[in-house]
Design a protein around this nucleic acid. Structure first.
Lengths: 111, 111
DNA sequence: AAATATACATAATTTACTTATGCATAATTT
DNA sequence: AAATTATGCATAAGTAAATTATGTATATTT
């Protein structure tokens, strides 16, 4: 994912956020989109992504639809109603995380 | 630590940052300082903190000095030279993480 | 006297990830 | 034409960082 451990715990947020903008995406597309948006700074590995997608689906946050394109399988995922709500929640969490960490990074008491 | 999974992987960064400002701190003091600075948003648990301090010490990033205050033990930690360098590195990582996540949070292609 | 705060510690478990491997087809390069 | 890379999915074994649950001990507050 990245050599930085800070990304641990961010994957679900990233997936949900991308799906909140793109309505439907398949796994490989997500890996490419993240690479593109972050200019290569972040690479989602398959070993992390696919289990995460399966879990989000099992939790009822994603619906899946299989398509065959150019004789190759694609599993398109999209947010459920519950998934939309969870996305809002996760994005709020991320914003609060950033605020909190910036408070530690740039505290008032810093020289 | 928090109900949010986003803090996973942030603990070492937090510890190093606090020690870069405070020159020496003991474990319990760190938990209280984090609680105070984040207005209760983040609580460092002992089960996470103490093993983390031990590991940072084992890696040569922290030095420890035991003191007895009011008949109670305190283990004061401070950054080594190597610890100072690692702190700079960790803070850069954090800033890059925030930039990257904000690029995903507020992408140009967002509606 | 009892409860809370201060101060440390560790062991068992959970969880999210990495690393490695596997299968299959399409497109590109040598 | 053959080999490599890209596309597209999947899972199993191992690792690392946390959570949860305990434990010990003294000081302070209710």
């Amino acid at each position: 994912m990245s050599n930085s451990k800070l990304y641990k715990g961010s994957l679900n947020t990233i997936i949900l956020r991308l799906l909140s903008e793109n309505s439907k995406m398949y796994g490989y597309e997500i890996t490419q989109k993240v690479k593109e948006l972050t200019k290569g700074a972040l690479k989602i590995t398959e070993g992390a992504l696919y289990p995460a997608l399966h879990k989000l689906e099992a939790e009822g946050l994603l619906d899946v639809e299989v398509q065959r394109v150019d004789n190759r399988l694609r599993k398109y995922y999209k947010l459920t109603e519950k998934g939309h709500r969870e996305t809002v929640s996760k994005l709020n969490e991320l914003e609060r995380y950033i605020e909190t960490m910036q408070a530690l990074l740039n505290p008032k008491w810093a020289t």
